[in-house]
Structure formats: structure tokens, C-alpha cells
């Protein structure tokens, strides 16, 4: 049976709840806004339901603890086309085995989940590392990113603990949403549609603090001078900083001219 859902994690968990409640054994879950592949199946819409989702979520915790919750959430954030079917098959195996499947890294489903978790973890860590804030005239620190996977929700705690005394905004321009910290709490924000794509451009031209470009220049020259030319190793360099991330990095931008 084909179910369509809104693409939220809550929606996905609600669908799992329905699967057990209505005893659907051939559940196929797809995003509501996507053209449906299987013409021969009946389709029904899932309405996200916080209570139902919470029951599934608690059930997972009861049998597998936080670790399995995290694993599931991260696989969901991958946005990979296989994620719904993988999560559903995994959950079926998980519940029917009293949770032991999640402890077995040799199980094909768990192995795949762990593999995806590793990819997500790596991307999350890269965002911790590669985000570069620019200071605006108002004293905010703003960064734009476009990560391969939807990892920003995983980065929030890190940045909140680290930059507790400055207002910051980290914005995912690919998914058009971000997180804003007002020195008290972190809020999810969405800028007006027209603004987002040009955020980085606007930042460099209009709203920067007086000293911002100066510090960028200092950082660029530090980066150049900490390099040891006789050890040049481009292959290794690119393995650590693949080219698609250069657009975030102050030190990889052309040297600023005054």
C-alpha cells in the first residue's frame, strides 16, 4: 500500500504508527509532492500526528535507547531516496527482534544505516569546521552554507554552547532555512524567499561591520603563511577539503583588495 506524507520526521513516524495500527504489510511511503511511481497501488495521505509519532518514538527508545533514535533521525536527515523504505524495513526488523537488530553491525539493514550515519556524521563535523561567520554592522555573526545533507539541526547544540555571547545566524541556502541565536534561545527561521539566494552576496557588499574585511584579510594571510611549500600535497589537501566546500571558506576566496 502506498502512503504519501509531508516529508517531516513526525510524518514518517506517524506512517509507521499507521502501519502497525492498520496492519499494512507492504507499506511504501513517498513524499506527497513527488510523482508516484507505482500506479497499481492505492494511495492514501498521512496526516502528521504528534501523539502517534511520539508513541513510535518512545517505543524505539524503550527497546533501543537514544542511540537507535539518533541513528534513525540521522538517516532521515540524509534525504536519500532510499531513506523511507530503509527506515521502515529497519523498524520492522527492529521491533520483531526485540531491538537486537540495532546491536548487530553485520545485519544488512543495520550495516546500511550505520554507513549512512557515518556520512551524516562526517558532513555535520564538516559544518562545525567549515562554517565561517561574518560580522554585520549590528554585531551579528552570519554564515551561509549548503550542506550535502540536511545536517544543520545537528549542529545547533555545538554552536549554541560555543558562541553563547554573540548573536548568530546560520543559514542553509540550499534548503532555504536556518537557525538564529538571540543570546538566549535558538530559533528556526526562514528568510523571505527573494532574500535567501543572495544572502552571501548581500553580506559582502552591504551590511558588514567596518573591521570584518580586515579580519578576513588577516585570516587569509595567516593561512598562506602557515603553509609549508616544500611539503605541498594537493591530493591530501583535496581529500580533506573537497572543492565543493571552498565556497564557504574565507581562506579559499580571492584575496580581498581595498
Amino acid at each position: 500500500m502506498l502512503l504519501t506524507y509531508d516529508g517531516t520526521f513526525e510524518g514518517m513516524l506517524t506512517a509507521v504508527f499507521m502501519m502497525y495500527e492498520e496492519k499494512i504489510d507492504d507499506l511504501q511511503l513517498v513524499l506527497a509532492n513527488q510523482p508516484q511511481a507505482s500506479l497499481f497501488m492505492t494511495s492514501e495521505e498521512v496526516f502528521s500526528d504528534a501523539t502517534k509519532a511520539a508513541r513510535v518514538w518512545d517505543g524505539i527508545a524503550k527497546k533501543g535507547g537514544k542511540r537507535v533514535q539518533q541513528l534513525m533521525y540521522k538517516v532521515f536527515l540524509s534525504e536519500l531516496p532510499e531513506r523511507e523504505s530503509l527506515l521502515i524495513s529497519f523498524l520492522k526488523a527492529f521491533f520483531s527482534s526485540q531491538g537486537t537488530v540495532a546491536k548487530n553491525p553485520a545485519h544488512p539493514l543495520t550495516a546500511r544505516m550505520l554507513q549512512i550515519q557515518k556520512m551524516i556524521g562526517r558532513e555535520k563535523h564538516r559544518m562545525d569546521a567549515f562554517i565561517r561567520f561574518m560580522q554585520t554592522k549590528e554585531g551579528w555573526y552570519v554564515a551561509t552554507v549548503a550542506p550535502d545533507f540536511n545536517v544543520l539541526p545537528l549542529n545547533v547544540a555545538h554552536f549554541k554552547a560555543r558562541y553563547a555571547d554573540q548573536q548568530w545566524l546560520i543559514y542553509d541556502v540550499k534548503r532555504n532555512y536556518g537557525f538564529y541565536y538571540n543570546e538566549q534561545t535558538v530559533e528556526e527561521v526562514q528568510l523571505e524567499q527573494a532574500l535567501a539566494p543572495n544572502l552571501s552576496e548581500r553580506l559582502t557588499t552591504l551590511y558588514l561591520s567596518e573591521e570584518e574585511l580586515q579580519f578576513q584579510t588577516l585570516w587569509q594571510s595567516y593561512f598562506q603563511h602557515t603553509n609549508i611549500a616544500s611539503r605541498k600535497n594537493t591530493k591530501l589537501h583535496l581529500r580533506h577539503v573537497p572543492k565543493r566546500y571552498w565556497k564557504y571558506l574565507t581562506e579559499k576566496q580571492p584575496v580581498i583588495k581595498k
Binding site: A161, A164, D165, Q166, F223, L236, H237, E251
Partner: peptide, 23 residues
């Protein structure tokens, strides 16, 4: 991080960038 200060180094290390020699 204590008292809303700046910074937190209780977690893992982070390499923020890599020089052209790969360090």
C-alpha cells in the same frame, strides 16, 4: 563554556581548514 562566555572545548577537536600541504 561557563557564565555565557566565549568558547567551549569540551568536545572533540576540529580541524577548521587544511593547508595546501594537507596539514
Amino acid at each position: 563554556n561557563t557564565n555565557k562566555g566565549l568558547g567551549n572545548s569540551s568536545g572533540m577537536g576540529i580541524c577548521h581548514s587544511y593547508t595546501e600541504d594537507g596539514r
